[in-house]
Design a protein around this nucleic acid. Sequence first.
DNA 1: GATGAATGAGAGTTCATTCAT
DNA 2: TATGAATGAACTCTCATTCAT
Lengths: 216, 216, 216, 216
Amino acid sequence: MAEILRCAEEVIEEYGYDQAAVAEVAKRAGVVEGTVYHYFETKRDLYIAVAEAWYRRVLDANQPTPASGSLYDRLRAAIRSELMIICESPAVVRFILMELRPDPAFRDMQIFAMNRKLTAALTRVLKDGIARGELVDHIPLRAVRDMIFGGIEHQTWAFLRNEGDFSVDDATDAISYVIYNGLKRRPPAAVEHSPSLDERVETLERIVASSLNSKT
Amino acid sequence: MAEILRCAEEVIEEYGYDQAAVAEVAKRAGVVEGTVYHYFETKRDLYIAVAEAWYRRVLDANQPTPASGSLYDRLRAAIRSELMIICESPAVVRFILMELRPDPAFRDMQIFAMNRKLTAALTRVLKDGIARGELVDHIPLRAVRDMIFGGIEHQTWAFLRNEGDFSVDDATDAISYVIYNGLKRRPPAAVEHSPSLDERVETLERIVASSLNSKT
Amino acid sequence: MAEILRCAEEVIEEYGYDQAAVAEVAKRAGVVEGTVYHYFETKRDLYIAVAEAWYRRVLDANQPTPASGSLYDRLRAAIRSELMIICESPAVVRFILMELRPDPAFRDMQIFAMNRKLTAALTRVLKDGIARGELVDHIPLRAVRDMIFGGIEHQTWAFLRNEGDFSVDDATDAISYVIYNGLKRRPPAAVEHSPSLDERVETLERIVASSLNSKT
Amino acid sequence: MAEILRCAEEVIEEYGYDQAAVAEVAKRAGVVEGTVYHYFETKRDLYIAVAEAWYRRVLDANQPTPASGSLYDRLRAAIRSELMIICESPAVVRFILMELRPDPAFRDMQIFAMNRKLTAALTRVLKDGIARGELVDHIPLRAVRDMIFGGIEHQTWAFLRNEGDFSVDDATDAISYVIYNGLKRRPPAAVEHSPSLDERVETLERIVASSLNSKT
DNA sequence: GATGAATGAGAGTTCATTCAT
DNA sequence: TATGAATGAACTCTCATTCAT
């Protein structure tokens, strides 16, 4: 049975859930299709079990992000961790997101709790940052998580399709930088549109800087 | 034929490309499958035609983002525009991204050029911001676009699946805010220590003074 | 209509009768399928017309084998003529043989008479040879024709499939030689099994010959 | 499964490979199409299996042509053997010749070896005859085989279509006679003038005489 | 004469699932 | 506990043919 799960994971990563044929799983596991259905009622159940096993493994291996250190470092660590996980098994994650999450019963599934635990680190860091006043509180956490996940996913696809290279660290850097700075609390003027004194000085500085550059 | 295209778009939005059976399209259009194949050589070709028609419609309707105004406003307008478009037909966008883009011949397809035109606004704003020094230049544009698109997509799915509410304006606000501030150029110390107004004015005075000196 | 016939011939030669789609013919002729059916009741009728036109052309172009000269030369000329014709349009010939000939009405078709005319040369030469006593009369003409046609066809396939090279002249030589000598009348002993004096001498000759060869 | 193979053979013999629908096979075997695809990946694979089973059966049943006896008898036996085989299952043979042989991988298929074994007898007899000098060596073996096969095939078709009668023995006689005599080595003058017994004995005497001289 | 849209039957193939053993 | 044969519905695609205009 463990073998079936192992092969099923292999197959879903290669083909995606829709194209992941039970027959292929059986063949690789060296059993017949009937055997798979002996253990799992449906194809869906099989892959739920795969996802659960995967989560269990990942949760065990994943040491929690340190609660100390600068907020930026902690955020970066959390994002890096997510990225590595998704990057390793994007099809499983996608299966959960696309096939399981819409299920009305999703919130009652083990997977839901496990998924929570996995994303908890990131959520905690963000909430903590907001609580301490280091991050703004007017952006819905959900939107932030979507940008992070969505950004990771899009980059992962391209990578899986051999379009361009992909570095976990570069991706982590880019996402962490944008999210952290994007959420960092600053004098409210930062986003106002009649320039504040600060902004006016900033503009000045830029001009001077570029002016100096052009002279050399 | 227009009817077939209309129904095909309906079907792909409901089921996604993989599950969008030609039989269903035919049924809705009130014709037999053979008729669909009379007009379109393959299922893929049918949906390429759908995508092209959709793009054409969207490009016509979409008034260009204003080139003037603050960078933030322009970025926000571009993001809003993308968001509304994707939000209306996420399956078509996903079809292009997942089925067409990996095709080696993608760059020679009409769709490629159309897609370019549509995403050009956003790219232009970002490049402009970088050129003017208002945005940092060390984050790959591709990563930024992935965060925006990915973020939009993730929010869109949830909405389509009737999970929670969704407001185009709220989503636009959240994404725009994070991206703009996340990319905004600031004194390098930004993360560690931000120089006081006093310090900055002092620096300015020194520079201006020396600048004047060098002119004599 | 002439254009349709021209294209139909092209198509049948490329794909064979079964795979020769009416749509493809229409496309090449620059008309729609309906137009083809305007002129020809069925696909079969279309290709019968093709075959008839082809026969007419071939019969016109094909100057009759000379009635003079040695029997061998005349036979060779007839075979060469057949070979060249089949070789040029094997699919049309095959269509007639496989689709038309089994038809109970075949003998009433124009094609039947035309086909007769075309194979008449060969038949005439053979009959003539038999009548003059130069060829044996105990082999059914039909069997001989089958060997010639079958042999030509088999060689033609291989050629069309790019298996090995093919020379019309070599094929003509081989077939003509075997058929002529195979049918040539000789002292009845030739095919008996207790060796005749002739055969015994022949054997002797061969042995002496090979013995001489081995000495050099 | 054996039943499926049996019915498939039946169907291909009735319709030929192209028209041999899997649905028809399934119907006759009393199963659904899916069942056929449970055992055979594709229609082609199904008929390859049919061909292999058929070859196996034929090879078992076919006692080898005797290596002794006159060349004519051996050739006749080989031809008769081929004729009977093709005559029983011409569609299978045609399938191999037309669908399988052009496949670049043909030479690696089981069928290739089996086919070899079956045609080996004929080839061996011909080569042997050539080696012993009883048959001429200037006609390509391939051309000879094509005449034999092609001739058999043409006669077979006609028979299967109930055109005229057909006797295995008559066909064997005709083909064997023509091929044997057609290839039989004779004094080069054969076609123009055949030396009399007197002339030949004279020649022999001269040779023997000089041969004796050279030995002293 | 010619169009071209539409048909309908059938092809090969896939696959989750069932069930007697 | 496991087998593996069998199912049946769905899928993409093909094509000869029809018919109102």
